[in-house]
Design a binder for these strands. Sequence first.
DNA 1: CGTAGGTTTGACTGATCTCAAGTTTGGTGG
DNA 2: CCACCAAACTTGAGATCAGTCAAACCTACG
Lengths: 243, 243
Amino acid sequence: MPSNDNDAFSQFIRKLDQLGTLNESDRAAVRSLPFQSQAVPRHYLIVREGEQATDCCILLSGYACRHKTTQSGGRQIVSFHVPGDILDLQHLLLDRADHSVQSITEVRIAVIPAAHIKRLAETHPAIADALWRDSLIEASIFREWVLNVGRRDAKQRVAHMLCEFASRRENAGQGSPERFEFPMSQEQIADATGLTPVHVNRMLAALDKDGVIVRNNREVEITDWTRMQQIADFNPAYLHAAA
Amino acid sequence: MPSNDNDAFSQFIRKLDQLGTLNESDRAAVRSLPFQSQAVPRHYLIVREGEQATDCCILLSGYACRHKTTQSGGRQIVSFHVPGDILDLQHLLLDRADHSVQSITEVRIAVIPAAHIKRLAETHPAIADALWRDSLIEASIFREWVLNVGRRDAKQRVAHMLCEFASRRENAGQGSPERFEFPMSQEQIADATGLTPVHVNRMLAALDKDGVIVRNNREVEITDWTRMQQIADFNPAYLHAAA
DNA sequence: CGTAGGTTTGACTGATCTCAAGTTTGGTGG
DNA sequence: CCACCAAACTTGAGATCAGTCAAACCTACG
């Protein structure tokens, strides 16, 4: 496997380090995990809802999301993911995937048998702690999404999503939250916010007109981060990021 | 403390037993946890958003919920809880509460210092597993709520909520899912589904007219469980309940 | 260039909200 | 046992935010 995969794997260690206090032996144990690196094209279904899954994936590069669908075909994205994120930690302890995981962009993932991560957690309490903490933070983000979709109006929802994306990107060391390539189509934003693509388009235009963002194809610049957070009702406390 | 608290505590052990495989020593360790039993009136705030929390609460009897609010005062209930549930496992590993916990009915809780539960988990891997599994199931429920609020129409949302309540009640050994006392006011249902109380009222009336439920004050009878599940688009897989 | 996927815009529709007025229920005190 | 009160529930009419449908316009890419 190419050396830059190991570099990328260090993204994961970086994240664990943010989540708890690892010592050198912990880090070494993570580094020695057997894994298979895999390149995945955009829009590819990595995990299918209902499947029995025995692997865990770590996102090395690119962006991914998880989604669920209603009987009538409505699609709801329930979270998006940045490099370093574990895409399906839940397969450590739950049998069947209750949702699908899909790449947004081209993506590089490390596939690790769940059993290995489980053993790692059993032998390294600090890692177990970090992983558990990660599950709890994820849950907190889901709660915020319930609030976002349930009680904010369309403009706020879209703005909130942009704020979260900008923040999490930054926390993952992917650069400034004020100017970045936004990888999702307006249809995907719609699926994440419980809106229609047409209305998302209008809300983006409204934010643009408000002077808080400037769009250039898929590049977004947040020109007034303070006002943007106000409009979005965004308070990053729920991300429980290291200070 | 009255003896029925210990009985009620066994509700929690029952739940852990459903979540994993405990041996007698595990159970004994749980039973010997120091805890303070507390009676709480209805509508009481047990945990306040933003607070630093060092205790975990277990719900012994009655119903509770968690909620978040927007800047503009919109309130969103993000989950409800049945006896045996741990109300704030997250305080084991996260500093500040990102949401509030409130009793719905009169409630009896066991308050346990988080540190004790943490130590219990460290010394009893089976319990750590069960607790972690519980966190993951909670996260799955949040994902379903995002879908519910984001992509289902008003009637489906209300129906789905009733189905989940009925199922979780039953899983917690609180009796038949086909006829039960429903503890939430229509305003609380509204806050859980992202609707207004007025519209919840109309949707309940519609479900009644459809012949799938019969209401009698706060008592609900689901007269056609199969059709109710269809209307609600309810598939209990996401609850990851023991078969 | 031609095509496909994505974005933008306009006109119309409709589900849900808002406001406001009753009605029922349950608890409390006389 | 009844009268009263607050809280919760119900119903109606009108307003509005977001959805639908449909067409036109970009942009990247083969």
